[in-house]
Design a protein around this nucleic acid. Sequence first.
DNA 1: TTGTATGCGTTATCAT
DNA 2: ATGATAACGCATACAA
Lengths: 335, 335
Amino acid sequence: MERVDIKRLAEKLNLSTSTVSRAFRGNSDINPETKARILAAAKEFNYQPNHHASNLRDKRSNTIAIIVPEIANNFFSQAIHGIERVAREKDYYTLIYLTDDDYDKEVMFVEKLYNGRVDGIIMSASGEANDHRYLKTTGNKQIPLVFFDRVYDDIDVPKVTTDDYASAFSATRHLIEAGCRKVAFLVINKSMSIGNIRMQGYKDALQDAGIPFQEQLVVDCSNDYDKNYHILTDFLVNERPDGLFTAVERLAISSYYVCHDLGINIPGDVKVVSFSSLEIASLLNPALSTITQPAYDLGTHAAEMLFKVLEGIPPQNNHIILGSKLIPRLSSAKM
Amino acid sequence: MERVDIKRLAEKLNLSTSTVSRAFRGNSDINPETKARILAAAKEFNYQPNHHASNLRDKRSNTIAIIVPEIANNFFSQAIHGIERVAREKDYYTLIYLTDDDYDKEVMFVEKLYNGRVDGIIMSASGEANDHRYLKTTGNKQIPLVFFDRVYDDIDVPKVTTDDYASAFSATRHLIEAGCRKVAFLVINKSMSIGNIRMQGYKDALQDAGIPFQEQLVVDCSNDYDKNYHILTDFLVNERPDGLFTAVERLAISSYYVCHDLGINIPGDVKVVSFSSLEIASLLNPALSTITQPAYDLGTHAAEMLFKVLEGIPPQNNHIILGSKLIPRLSSAKM
DNA sequence: TTGTATGCGTTATCAT
DNA sequence: ATGATAACGCATACAA
């Protein structure tokens, strides 16, 4: 009921607030016995130094924000797990923001964070196609930002990504080696840096194999399951590709549904490889060949970079690139 | 670079800080023109009222905490999504805590939150078997708490759960109707309220069908994949059940792996039904029969209950129970 | 409608 | 080793 603050605790102990305060901070000198008394009393009365008061004084919040497009997604939930673990170790709070892939929300979130609410931001971007200048202000205001996975190339902050080009290249080559001659590339936003890079790997692998690139084999999908279902149905019926390389897990899933419904056999009629963080890819029917990104590690690295910046240590390497793993399974097996 | 606060903004505008402050609060009277001027200037200088200062004054944080066992889990990530959406609408911040199913962490998190950091907590519990008295203090300190899914029965706070008993009952009956006579129940912590309730539904469905309950068909599993693999391998080899009812998704996954490796056919040799929030259950090999909980709705309801409490509206119903859906698929098909 | 003054709870500085 | 005090930035009660 009664809220106990430092003042009341001090009164109960016949001490000054400064002494009590000292008991909770590492540095200042204080008699060990006094400290013990204070800590005991604090425990008894369930006292905790008020967060807002401390942070107002210190001008820091011990809090970071994570901004991601979505959370009900294996990749992001694993990455968040990684970030949270590092933050917890540093005794930082973790605020979470979901943009639902909406660029306007992203801007709103970031601008709101100028209120001293957080010490730093870790973000996977939602609006590649849009204007990023709103972030440049961030630079001026010195609120540290780190990108992971989906980055804005024109914003010069630390970034953690995977070797998307190489992965896309090897995934495409893998399909070709499995016998595909008409490999499609399914992507959600090919103008996003990440979609673009993956497409480049795809193109180059085709060229490398002497297969001409065909624009109509690049399928621009959406975030909406129903829309994708139609897009992919049309595409598969009309183009009859013999290989699908999908830039995100969701598109592989949609492809599976469509193929099931159309009676298209995987891998007999069409082979599939996808970027995916699905842990149970091997349990799918058929087992899905994946390029698995180290989502958790992406998160921990991003967090570690951010904390380096917060600690004033300039990161030696402003762009960390982690390797992904191509795991061939039945969906892309040579028949 | 230069940090602009309310004072500086006031100086630039030749106004007092109180007037500037008023421009940002809905209530107080202020000349619309003045307000417009202030807001314009705020935009220009990128001013945002300092979060900690406001909250120190107001003794509220506009922040809620979500405490869950894990996040890389379809159920929890969907629930979090629901909570976040409601919080966002209310213009609240959302802090996230992952306990990794560790009761000690849960206690630590909650106790740390006594520092005024958040206005309320939404939690799915990690330590049913442990002592919950640490939460009773919370009651005294009036920091509102709402449970969802995994609850502590002995703590009297608003709760949102699903109809676990009925779901477990019908899942078990479903297996029996599909021809199973030796149905096992796989559970992670049967002493947890939720595991217990599900087990009761299982038992009663057996009894209802005139099948005697056998203790050795209740398999106590862990959170660890490797351990479960061994536990389940032993169990399947030794007991040869013809039906598996698994209390959590993870155990169905492990069962699939084990059955694949042992050459046990699903549903031919053993049929499987599981509580699961897996969206692609129908793409598994074989398609997994699920009891699907409305995870997202659980989240939104929990959040709405919490905000009711925060707004001083006593919830009319202290325990909301949502229905789950049994979706039979190939894994439990009658042969 | 606007301004003045005070206090929210904490901690660093300075004094004792 | 401990105490008194000022300041962090803001929002309200009260005065004008």
